[in-house]
């Protein structure tokens, strides 16, 4: 049974000619103890989807169910108490922690809000435990955010998110703002606490190279539509959708003896100017067919495959049908 269910979520920003369709009917599920990586480029709508899941942004249509609660139908008060089970870690640790509060108060705040612990002293004691769990010293309690580096603050943000003992965690690009040498520490910590507590985790990232290390499943989002979704290893090793393939081929390797990034980049077709009402990737797709410009592809599972990978692509549909005949 899925702990988080998003069903046919749509969202548009702006009005009239400036109207931008940010999400075009997205459905996702995340099970207890599972990490789903939502991978996409800037403007794909991935952060909006994360905020809709927590109802920090209102969706236009669709349903969100977390622990069987219809999140979009909760009253303001019900929503506030439901937030105990769903927490978020933001990309920018400097911006997401109130600069006027000391670390101790920041970590204790969610507990205060949700009435966890008998009194404030108990909450502060728990805050110390949480800080120690994320690898910080109790002396951090009385210091201000500006006294810490980005990596340390992201640990504080993790401690704060864990303070209410949530079941669902949204991580919005949690390491994108961090230095390379501290990224791994924070990712390891996130993976550890996710395992330890059996969290359902929505891990939003633009960096496909992280996916295999942190996620069980991956959903690739392009212009507000999921183009491919399946087990992380399978999607990484055998990307099926042309967009997933393009994304993966753009990740730099690290062996100077086997350079291929620039050659791969040269193979990508130049974007066409034609507007597509069908597939969002049509103007950049090397395999584009006439049908792609007009029909919206629906996600299908390849019945013959051993893996549950859903792909929304007309080209693959044609192949599949040919294979069946």
């Amino acid at each position: 049974m899925a702990l988080v269910e998003l069903d046919r979520i749509t969202k548009a920003f702006g009005r009239g000619r400036r109207r931008v369709q940010a999400l075009r009917g997205i459905s996702l599920t995340i099970a207890r103890g599972e990490t789903l990586a939502l991978v996409g480029e800037s403007g794909s709508g991935k952060s909006t989807l994360g905020r809709i899941a927590l109802r920090l942004v209102e969706a236009d249509e669709g349903t969100v169910r977390i622990l069987d609660r219809p999140v979009r139908e909760l009253s303001a008060k019900e929503l506030r108490s439901a937030r105990r089970d769903m927490q978020m870690i933001f990309q920018d640790p400097f911006g997401s922690l109130d600069p006027r509060m000391v670390i101790g108060e920041l970590v204790a705040e969610p507990m205060t809000v949700h009435g966890i612990g008998a009194d404030h002293d108990e909450r502060l004691a728990r805050a110390v435990e949480l800080l120690e769990r994320v690898g910080l010293d109790a002396s951090a309690m009385e210091r201000f955010p500006y006294e810490f580096s980005g990596g340390q603050l992201q640990r504080v943000a993790i401690a704060r998110a864990l303070a209410t003992d949530p079941k669902f965690l949204v991580c919005d690009e949690p390491v994108a703002a961090l230095d390379v040498s501290v990224r791994a520490q924070v990712l390891n910590l996130l993976t550890e606490v996710q395992r330890e507590r059996g969290l359902a985790c929505l891990f939003i990232t633009h960096d496909l190279s992280l996916v295999r290390a942190v996620a069980d499943r991956v959903a690739v989002i392009h212009h507000g539509a999921i183009v491919e979704c399946g087990p992380a290893e399978e999607v990484y090793e055998h990307p099926r959708h042309p967009y997933t393939q393009a994304l993966l081929s753009a990740v730099p390797g690290r062996d100077p003896d086997r350079r291929s990034l620039l050659a791969r980049a040269a193979e990508q077709p130049a974007p066409q100017t034609r507007e597509s009402t069908g597939c969002t990737f049509a103007n950049r797709c090397p395999l584009v067919m006439e049908r792609c410009w007009t029909d919206v592809p629906t996600p299908h599972v390849d019945a013959a495959a051993s893996h549950e990978v859903e792909v929304a692509c007309h080209h693959l549909d044609v192949h599949r049908q040919q294979a069946l005949q």
Partner: peptide, 11 residues
């Protein structure tokens, strides 16, 4: 660079 790392391993 974590791309060689699999789920279940630490970076």
């Amino acid at each position: 660079t974590p791309d060689e790392c699999r789920r279940g391993e630490l970076l």
